[in-house]
Design a binder for these strands. Sequence first.
DNA 1: TTTATTTGTTAGATACTACTAACTTTATTT
DNA 2: AAATAAAGTTAGTAGTATCTAACAAATAAA
Lengths: 166, 166
Amino acid sequence: MDSTAFRTTSSLEDYLEAIAIINGQDTKVTVTALSKSLKVKKPSVVAALKKLSCDGLVIHDRYSDVKLTPAGNRIAGEIYRRHQALRSFLVNILNVDPKIAEEDACRMEHSLSSASLEKLGKFLEFVLNCPQGEPEWLKGFNYFFEHGKRDERTMAKCQRISFPGN
Amino acid sequence: MDSTAFRTTSSLEDYLEAIAIINGQDTKVTVTALSKSLKVKKPSVVAALKKLSCDGLVIHDRYSDVKLTPAGNRIAGEIYRRHQALRSFLVNILNVDPKIAEEDACRMEHSLSSASLEKLGKFLEFVLNCPQGEPEWLKGFNYFFEHGKRDERTMAKCQRISFPGN
DNA sequence: TTTATTTGTTAGATACTACTAACTTTATTT
DNA sequence: AAATAAAGTTAGTAGTATCTAACAAATAAA
């Protein structure tokens, strides 16, 4: 059992992530900055910070700026990694429009389990850091999506390696 | 603009999906069945059905069983397709434990855009319906995940086809 | 330093979702 | 048909998350 398990909600996770991102830009994390970043009104930010503060995930004294605790930072990092992995998959593998991919990632980042994230991360590493560059099959997929049928040339090559080697 | 756009929530989408699934099993869609299926109490079901009924997504007369309207059925189908695509990706591509994949799909199904779903569906079709069976690279990924490094044999073959053909 | 502006906060309202407890209707037994 | 059980409903409560309006504190300008 994880001794530092906080049951955060999607909403609170969004706040933690936003705090980490703003902080990463060497900008002071203020209520106003969070309000703009998350497109919510300032009283909503204050209410969220109160909860996060009670849960020991942020430090926030009245009228001063916000800091993540180590626990809060850990959660924020996890959410951010989910976000990046999902966005990367959508953009770099599926070739989804970056704007849509970003929006989808923002919503899905709250739903991906650690187990799946780990696999997805490895998958992206395997495909995108391929020593031979963009794998042939990924080009084949883009052809397939564009033309609605498989590329004969790629298929022939695929076949060539699929059988003799086994 | 979509003339039949209902802003449903995750929760209401879950109800629509469950109705479609129960209906697909040729079982009467009752409050009790939905209550069991979604693991919520019956008053919650009644409240949800009232909203869906007001939005014209289900037909539900007091004390009788539930039916999807065409509009409701369309939304339910969309959610179900998202669910299946996500689950299939997690299980068949990433090799995530089926139980975890199912849970993740249940949550993520509310967050995937139509654009991404279309791409994901095509991707799965491309990979899983490959005429040559499970693609070599997918085996390569599983090796990579298990051993933490790429399979030399697969890489050599990959290299062989990546360059001469281009 | 007084004034004005920005920033942060509180209080109160609304919407969503689920719950329990109590009640009504329908279906099943006896 | 009366009694019992099951299914469905209503009313009222609670937690989450958001909003507006009004107010307080801190900062910047005059």
